[in-house]
Nucleic acid binder design. Structure first.
Lengths: 351, 351
DNA sequence: ATGAAAGCGCTAACAG
DNA sequence: CTGTTAGCGCTTTCAT
């Protein structure tokens, strides 16, 4: 019976019409059955499903989306090179599929700009764009938001039509400082993230916390960055520098885990013992930090929470009337938390 | 003039029909102009383009793909968690766009299986599936290949309808051993990759090279893996073990860079000096290896070459008649190369 | 060079 | 419960 259908001979994949013919019903009915919506008897339902299975039928997603009014697709623009983005993408898949939405990815890389990534998403007519740590200007993002709802993750920004969800960066650094002070540290330096997203907030959190602990005189921010190299360079400079006024730091809080790894590595190579001589704290709780032989004390980003919040914002925009007055989007800030591992300890008494 | 068009009032984006109306021509003509194919006078061409620009028109990719006969879309299934996959994705974007093909990504993560990732790709009707280091069985991949052309990267496999492109893993390890022997090393151990893709070939390459150099008695493969943790564990075991018959190794070749980092870190923490006391070589030339403070000697994977070859295979399948007799696909093996950095040196004479 | 008409595979109104 | 009809936005004959 199946051998008579033309798609068996060619390379063509079975369509809804093929299933309808084979099952002896109309296309509309097959559509109803496939989508699992009410409107078909149990008998037909079973038969159609059986035929569809036998034929290996799978609905054509493009046709489906083209026809559908509302667009249940979340476009995610992320930087392929950033481990943190990869983690977020994983969490976004989970969060989106939990509420029955599809995710389509668009990567930025060397040679493929953020602009390009977003354009691709727009051309696929996804219903909302979720941009991870976008580098575009506020004006550009607002321009984008005029065409499609935009949600940004990990970028502090107030812009018309753009929702933002991010980690409470300042609070994270405050927790780190609190932890170290609790252990008895005073000479705590912050290797910062320069102009990286969130770096300003983290610097502020560090300064505030130090001040609150009466350690204003020990405040010491050294220029770092968001890579291991940055952390290594900053630490090398610190070791070379005598800093008579501040003395040798007994603890270092890095901008992120990558930076902290550079710090760690440089300390180790110079013969310092961590945490006996120097304590080190990172930020992100990336896979790197969790590795047994690194076992870095760090401030964990609420990745799953960020993803869920972003998806929530997206749904909000998608299910709400788009002709509503465009206004500055919501700004959701989620708290990070401290994870104590083995790179922090009380300062050595004799130091 | 534009204010009269309904899409200005609503959130709807302009369609080809809108452009046609505004320009006073037929939709077919606009289509011709937009695609840049011959069949329109210069005058209309200019006018249509002007109108399209003013309206901010962008063709709907879904509709376009739906209508088009041939499918110029490459579906890429990759593991979001693997840095090597991210690098490949970047290269694939470049390679595909160079020949005018689109790439659609589908990630596998914790909670999103490879199977799922591929199904999504199929539902979007991409013309070919490029699977990075797939874990599916040969039977499963052949089943997939019956529905759509399949190209695998970084997986040794001979299967009907499946093209494979991969690095010459054995040759890579041979180069590593040659380099070390050239420096004067004899006690060279290989921290292997266990069951990871390519691990068997690399082990073989190591054994062959050692044998060829008359170092059969020094052959020493210790169980590792593809993570930093694996490398660290293997090295810790090695340091604890006295290995009276083989003596202390003066050089270690790891399965990959991540593993090598674990090796490096453990050596450092145990007070060993690299490369003065022990030389270390990785595999991949990942971003990690290139970091200035790591500066790992490694075997570079030909990432761009792999990506280009994969895209070539895909084009081949796409432009060739699909009814051709299904046969075992091509198997392309690309040579890696040695990159000497600062973790290798001649063995210390007194050792 | 231009336009009319058909249809890709699907869903959504509306009839029966 | 089931089928018919009418598109989604685009490309593609085929006329003109």
């Amino acid at each position: 019976v199946l051998a008579t259908l033309n798609f068996v001979t060619g390379a063509r994949r079975p369509t809804l019409a093929d299933v309808a013919t084979a099952a002896g019903v109309s296309r509309a009915l097959v559509s109803i059955v496939i989508r699992g919506v009410p409107g078909a008897s149990e008998a037909t339902r079973a038969r159609v499903i059986a035929v569809a299975d036998e034929l290996g039928y799978r609905p054509d997603q493009r046709a489906r989306l083209l026809r559908q009014r509302e667009n249940r697709v979340l476009g995610v623009a992320f930087d392929v090179r950033r481990a943190f983005h990869s983690d977020l993408v994983g969490a976004l898949y989970t969060a989106a599929e939990a509420v029955g939405y599809d995710v389509v990815l668009s990567g930025v890389t060397t040679g493929r700009s953020e602009q390009r990534a977003v354009t691709t998403l727009l051309d696929e007519r996804c219903g909302v764009v979720i941009a991870l740590g976008p580098t575009a200007s506020r004006a550009e993002l607002e321009g984008l938001a005029r065409r499609v709802p935009v949600v940004t993750i990990a970028r502090r920004l107030r812009a018309v039509g753009v929702d933002t969800v991010r980690t409470a960066d300042a609070a994270g650094l405050r927790d780190a400082v609190d932890h170290l002070v609790g252990l008895g540290h005073q000479r705590i330096v912050h290797v910062d993230g320069g102009k990286a997203p969130g770096a300003a907030d983290r610097r502020r959190g560090y300064r505030d916390a130090m001040t609150r602990h009466g350690l204003r005189d020990f405040i010491d921010v050294v220029g770092g960055g968001d890579t291991e190299e940055d952390g290594a360079r900053a630490t090398a400079g610190l070791l070379a520098d005598l800093r008579p006024s501040l003395g040798r730091p007994t603890a270092m809080v890095a901008f992120n885990d990558a930076c902290a790894l550079g710090v760690l590595d440089t300390l180790l190579r110079s013969g310092r013992n961590v945490p006996a001589q120097v304590s080190v704290i990172g930020f992100d709780d990336s896979r790197l930090a969790r590795l047994a032989h690194i076992d870095l004390t760090t401030i964990a980003q609420p990745i799953d929470g960020l993803a869920r919040a972003a998806v929530d914002c997206a749904l909000q925009r998608l299910t709400t009337d788009p002709v509503a007055a465009p206004t500055v989007g919501s700004d959701i800030e989620l708290p990070p938390w401290l994870i104590v591992r083995s790179t922090t300890a009380a300062p050595s008494t004799g130091a």
